[in-house]
Structure formats: C-alpha cells, structure tokens
Design a protein around this nucleic acid. Structure first.
Lengths: 184, 184
DNA sequence: TAATTCTGAGACACCGGTGTCTCATTCGAC
DNA sequence: GTCGAATGAGACACCGGTGTCTCAGAATTA
C-alpha cells in the first residue's frame, strides 16, 4: 500500500502512461488506496497530474545533477547521464507524452530549465568537437529524449530487456550523435 | 472548408495530437465544419479517432509500398522509406502516442502488419551486414518510429526546419544503426 | 425559377466522472 | 486499554461532453 505521496505518484504514472484518461478510481486502486484518500493527497485530477509531472522533473533534475552534465568531457557526461536517467525512462516518457502538462506553469518552467541544461550539454559537446555539428543541438536534445522515452516504453511493455536498456540507448544515440562514431 | 472525410481527419490530427482530449466542437471548428456535420461523417468520438488511426496507417503502408522496403539493399530501402514517410511524420507521431488506438482491433491488426514489415527490413539489413547486430531489430524498429515521431513534433512546433527533417532523421538514426557509419 | 439535398446553429436530455460529504472502522500513539 | 487521527466505503449532487433532434438557410441540380 502506498501511503506517501511519491509512491502514489509512481503508481499513477503506471496507469496514466498507458491510459491518460484513466479514472481516478483506477489510479486509486493501482496505488492501493481509496479514492477518498487519493483526493485528500491531491485535490483534484489536475493537481495529481501536475504533481506527477513535477516528480518526473525532480528525477530528471536529480539525474542531471548526479551526472554532473555541466562538467568535463561532453561524451563522458552524456554517458553518465544515460546511466542515471534510464531507470526513470518511463517517467520521462510520460513527461514528453502528456501534453496536458504543458498547461501547468510550474511544470513548464522546470521543464524548460532542464531542457536548457541538456541543450547546453550538446552545444558544449559540439564546441569540444565530440558531437556532430551537422545536427543542431536542439534536435540532438529532442532526439535524445525521444529515444529515452522509447526505451521506457520498450522496457515497460517487455519488448526490451531492462539490462539492455542503457546499452541500446547509448549505442544507438551516440552512434548518430558522435562525430567519431563508436570510439568505445 | 473540408468536406471530404480525409480532410476532416487531417484537421482532427492537428488538434488531437496537441490535445487528445479536445472537444468535438474544437475539432469541428478546426475542420471548418459544424459539429452536426462532423457527427454525420463520423458517428461518435471513438469512430473519429479510429478513422484517424486508419488514415495514418494507410499513409504508412503506402510509404512502405512506394519505398519498396522489401527489395534491394536494406540501407537504400530505409533511405527511400525516410523520404516517403517524413511528410507524414506527424500522423505517425499521433499513431504511436495515442494509446487509445490500441483498443481498436482493426487499427491494431494493420499496425502490427506494418511494424512487421519494418522489423523485417531491419532483420534483412542485419543479415546483409549493413545494420548493427548488437542492437535488436525490434529496438531498431521502435527507435526509428520514436525518432520519426520526434521529427514530426519538432517540425510542427517550429523547432526544426521542414527542409532539415529528412536529413536530421536519416543522419542521426543511420549513424547509430549502420554497421559502418556514414558511408555516404 | 423550383425542388432537392446538404449544412449550420441551437436546444435538449442523457451519461459518466468528479468533487464533496458522512460515518463506521482501523491503525497508531500514549 | 483508551483516545485521536486517518482511512475506506458509500452516497449524492454537480458539471461538462456527447448524442440526438429540429428547423432555417444555403448550395446544387433540374
């Protein structure tokens, strides 16, 4: 049973990612609590969805912090980021897929801040000569997130083994992003 | 004003892709018709969404046909496919993103048939030695679609110039998928 | 011009999800 | 063991979207 807020939010993601229009009853059941308690924790559907977005963004920000993406070689930094973020790939997938989150101002601000950090990482990598300059840093950022979301889906749906997730993402993306491919 | 069904469906994608829960009023307005006429063309919301999915799948199947993905060198076939499908990237993005479509049996069957063709293309490419075998054909198929959807979003939101779309998709994906990267 | 068909605007009831409340029960603290 | 807080189950009304219908006006055709 999930009593604390974050546990409920994780359960909510599990349901909402598959069916964004799922009823609150279903979400409450997935979290192992009643609809009344769910409503006590989050006053309304919008609040719940917004909190889910904020949770995902906190995880993303945390991964960016832990990976120290602002420091050192951009290639190594990106590999550190992949290691950190892949476990939360599904959360990021929900983040990109749920367009309703774009209405939430707090979510939007934090989202753009994190995207900016990712964008800066690719820009720095291009200046360092490790990332290709034919592809814009904006597109690299977006593509990275698209593949990260894809990893999340593939793992959740059982199409990809969890232990292959990091490798599959890193190899495919870096192969296309690095200026000198596959210098393992 | 969009009188024929396909025009309405295209307008519907434009709205539904951004807000999957958009009201029928909004969709009708986007198509330039009244809600009454919309309901005459498609009896209900589910029917409309299902038809949108079928339209997207028809386009995808058509692109796979025109590109003749079953014939010749897998690398060249994939490049032909990219050229054909990029204009309908947004349609494919909606196809992958709208989980509600998975409930529609007709959509599901056609979807899996096209995915199978894509999967076979990558498998053939791996056997031909042009695609990497460290990455599963299933993951290559999924990743290709993820990036295709990303292209659709980036172009629609103005983050990527339409004329860069094909290049950006091909270069990034092929860089990661090809066994010998960038033999232009 | 006249007739037919199609469309748009509006009104209306139905329905399902949500928000809110109550109350019995259970869990935890002291 | 007792008290207080929290939870679950249920009931209820509200609300918005949808499905349906009607009718007037416009477009097309004869």
């Amino acid at each position: 049973m999930a009593t604390d807020r974050d546990s409920v939010l994780e359960a909510a993601v599990g349901v909402l990612s598959r069916r964004p229009t799922a009823h609150l009853d279903e979400i409450a059941r997935a979290a192992g609590i009643s609809r009344a308690t769910l409503h006590r924790l989050f006053p309304g559907r919008d609040a719940l969805i917004g909190e889910v977005g904020m949770l995902a963004l906190r995880r993303l920000a945390s991964a960016l912090d832990t990976a120290a993406v602002e420091e050192g070689d951009a290639h190594a930094a990106l590999r550190r980021l992949i290691d950190e973020i892949v476990p939360d790939a599904m959360l990021c997938a929900y983040l990109t897929g749920e367009s309703q989150l774009y209405d939430d101002e707090a979510v939007n601000d934090l989202w753009e801040a994190q995207i900016a950090r990712l964008h800066a990482l690719f820009l720095r990598g291009q200046q360092q000569g490790v990332f290709r300059i034919e592809l814009s840093a904006a597109w690299l950022s977006e593509a990275f997130f698209d593949l990260l979301a894809g990893i999340g889906w593939a793992v959740q749906d059982g199409r990809l083994a969890p232990r292959d997730a990091t490798f599959s993402l890193a190899e495919l993306f870096l192969g296309g992003a690095l200026r000198t491919p596959r210098p393992h």
